[in-house]
Design a protein around this nucleic acid. Structure first.
Lengths: 342, 342
DNA sequence: CTCCTGGTTGCACGCGCGTGCAGTTGAACG
DNA sequence: CGTTCAACTGCACGCGCGTGCAACCAGGAG
């Protein structure tokens, strides 16, 4: 029991352990370096002393020599709208499995200068994962930073034009096409679309996939509304607007499930429409709530696990010094038929 | 444009900047140390050279001298069940505002040995925030680690018995009491309760708050069921069990909103009950979906922002070397009346 | 016994940085 | 002009660690 008021407990160093174990500091270092040459005898002495002193190697100091921090920066959004919890979860558990730690960066609303960004990025990391949850401008700033400093970086569900970074996307276009197909196959012709307001990869690709297939199949001009927010409220508002202008709408595609559920609530509660009898709704992502009985939302499943796996595969490859040019992976999506569409 | 295939870009050091600027390395260091003595002239030279070389101070190296990493470890769960997204969001943005970075630790299912834990914790951090989202055993391990090494740590919505760590909780007991009050005030007598299966602070305190007040007000024995999971599915299953055994149930309190919504869906879709006419339901947390029209869930709001603020206040105080004994804060909760209860 | 070999060990250096201390400079003052 | 002092600068050291290198040791072959 240390007396209160004293300076904080001194964290044991390799030096301390060496002294207690009666060996050199190198021996301690080698004991904690896999593959280094230490005799079983000294190793045991070191381990015993380490345990007694509660010794934990200082990864920050180590990184000075090894040039590797085993830290991966994961960039996500500060708008709790999107369900990035699942995503982070996947990244974190998989990274910890392979010996990495997660340095979390949440997008800040308005980052005035690059200086502020640089202050946040003083910590050396081995690589960046930049997810679509972050705001567009913020993503760009981070990308610039990575490229300028030559730090391996990969973007997920976002392709930054002009930046030679590898990207991983789910097949947004195919998903949009699936959505329009199921609506048209259900005999519907008057279609609508709710999309986010930012020109992000997710928004534009899913929309274009929908519009192009619609055109191919002879649907002239689906009604398009941009939601002010990428969440339930945004969907609710946008649906009100859309249904106000097109009361005869038959089928609706929303670029994500949150928007879709917002739109469904609006359609049912306010517009007094039955889903799917009066209006079919299709979402995108397959978030947990999509399967809840009240919504039973037909949607396009984004295989988070696979996408995270692929992202880390590409990132690790880049970290391992592979100088191959940026790659652009596309992960297939899966159509999930439920009761919200005919 | 660096040629591809070359070794990775060498990250500029203070030495490089010093040479280019024609000053000593100390001058560079002082330029990036607020409050240090540097003349405006040299500062300008240093800043110019830094910009040209894309220099960013290495926080890991700095931490060796300063004994401060400006890193806070935030421990959350790997079960995406609970809505810890919002929580992380708050922590992250607030920490970044005050110059800290987030080191994310997600609870792993079965951590065999402490060695594995130690491997994850080699990175020196200034403090720990241990949230209730993590599994009980994992929390305990982390707490032991913090105490053994004298690292400042604070728990959120979880009080670890026997560990002299400060804790922050919302007022679970008061919330439970509010729930039972609104049910009884609505004229209901046959009450039920769905609680999680783990003996965590959240589960036991919310339950006890409910049961004690129920006893005070003359409700003999509310029916209690433990959900196998702390989420929608858990609530759904538990409600089936509960309503099977007590078809005449009038009021139901669930220890969180996800369980409550699961139970509501079960009651409506399968048991064909009307909410709130046949069954009143009250949740806890006030997650976004609670306000969606389909659920319109009466609940107890947990003020996330305030709790996070208080958590960081206490943690920072601990970090600043305040040797005062562990404190235990309780943040008030707020009753949110909606349509799921009479 | 000598020599050689393979396995260990310790020394010493440096990773990138902060900071105490002595030295230098310039300006203001007498 | 000489003196004083404050502002500034550079030197040198060390933070905790990995690692090349030379020294060392034990053991087997000759």
């Amino acid at each position: 029991m240390s007396r209160s008021g004293e300076a904080r407990t001194h964290r044991a160093t390799a030096q301390d352990v060496a002294k207690l174990a009666g060996v050199s500091r190198s021996a301690v270092s080698r004991t904690f370096t896999p593959g280094a040459a230490v005799s079983p005898a000294t190793r045991q002495k070191v381990l015993a002393a380490s345990q007694q002193l509660q010794y934990v190697p200082n990864a920050a100091a180590r990184s000075l020599m090894t040039k590797r921090t085993n830290l991966i920066a994961v960039v996500v959004s500060n708008q709790a709208s999107t369900s990035y919890g699942r995503l982070l979860d996947c990244f974190s558990s998989r990274l910890m499995d392979i010996g990495y730690n997660v340095f979390l960066i949440t997008a800040v609303e308005n980052l005035d200068t690059d200086d502020q960004l640089l202050k946040m990025l003083r910590y050396p990391v081995d690589g960046f994962v930049i997810t679509a949850a972050a705001s567009l401008e913020f993503s760009r700033q981070i990308c610039r930073h990575c490229i300028a400093l030559g730090i391996p970086a990969v973007t997920l569900n976002r392709t930054i034009e002009g930046a030679e970074l590898s990207s991983i996307n789910c097949d947004h276009r195919a998903g949009g096409a699936m959505a329009v197909d199921t609506l048209i196959d259900g005999g519907l012709r008057r279609l609508g679309l709710i999309v986010g307001h930012e020109p992000t990869t997710v928004n534009t690709e899913r929309m274009n996939g929908f519009l192009e297939r619609a055109a191919e199949r002879g649907i002239a001009e689906p009604a398009v509304v941009r939601a002010r927010q990428f969440n339930f409220d945004g969907g609710y508002e946008a649906a009100a607007q859309l249904l106000g202008r097109h009361p005869d709408l038959e089928g609706l595609f929303c670029v994500n499930d949150q928007i879709a559920i917002g739109a469904m609530e609006m359609a049912r509660k306010d517009a007094k429409l039955r889903v799917p009898e009066d209006l079919s709704i299709v979402g995108f992502d397959d978030m947990p709530a999509a399967a809840w009985p009240s919504f039973d939302l037909t949607t396009i499943r984004q295989p988070i696990d696979k996408m995270v796996g692929e992202t880390l595969r590409v990132l690790m490859q880049t970290i391992e010094g592979d100088a191959s040019p940026a790659s652009h992976s596309v992960v297939p999506v899966e159509f999930v038929r439920r009761g919200s569409s005919r």
